[in-house]
Amino acid sequence: MKGIITEIERFSLRDGPGIRTTVFLKGCNMACKWCHNPETLQIKPQLMVYPEKCLGCGACVRVCPSGARTIKDGALHYSRAICTGCGACANDCFTGALILSGREMTVEEVMEEILQDRAYYKNSGGGVTLSGGELTTQPEFARALLETVKAEGISTALETNMHAPWHVYESLLPLVDLVMFDIKIFDCEAHRKWTGVSNERVLENARKLAKTGKDFLVRTPVIPGVNDSQEEIGNIAEFAGSLGGAQYYELLLFNPLGESKYQALQTDNHFEGASPSPVKTADRLKQIAEERSGMPVRVG
């Protein structure tokens, strides 16, 4: 069983309880315009190009089987349209100018990395978190990986947008100790506008999950000009509170670190130059969320 992995992050402190390893699966079923990991949106491997690091050795041109890398007028060119994402160029690029995002890995290969930190999980109440992209875009691999992790006695968690068909969650939940899911926007049309999909399934899945008795928590990325109004956060918080049983509700402030990745993928960044909401706004939203949800609220 193989999956496409964007990254395996060890000593992850913000993706669930304790010290964790977070496995980022590539591919997403939403297209949030503020996404700070744009390289995870497509499931297929993608080349990230950092021309400022290139020394012009031409190795990439020599090994490219599809002719996507060429030299014209003494300058290196790249055609994303014909690039197959095979990674031959990145494999021979040692300057960091070309990096392939997305690596095919077996469950065993991922486990090799995971198991190195087993003692840290045990002492801290941590474990392994599957994240993305959206992990449910690779449901079979996710299930196989979760099965293996659980068999090792390691705690598991999911970070999901809750937009997969419910049966996918049904197949994964028995292997999961904690679900951390997003409700990004409460207004259905606005959700469609900013993420490309409606939130009806998200909300429905959230209700279903709450009834399973599984540990869960609700999170909202706070995006300036999109959902950082008191009304929007208040509505989401109220819904989160109505589910009953969530550990807490978390507001995740906008992360501007994706900017260089958009450049490397040569795609438009809708939120170029944007900053996280000011502290004052975040504090006010936290207060509103606490009032409307009746739950503890964190700001991350």
Partner: peptide, 9 residues
């Protein structure tokens, strides 16, 4: 707490 757990480990 996580850093303390890291140290112990």
């Amino acid at each position: 707490q996580k850093i303390a757990d890291y140290i112990l480990t």
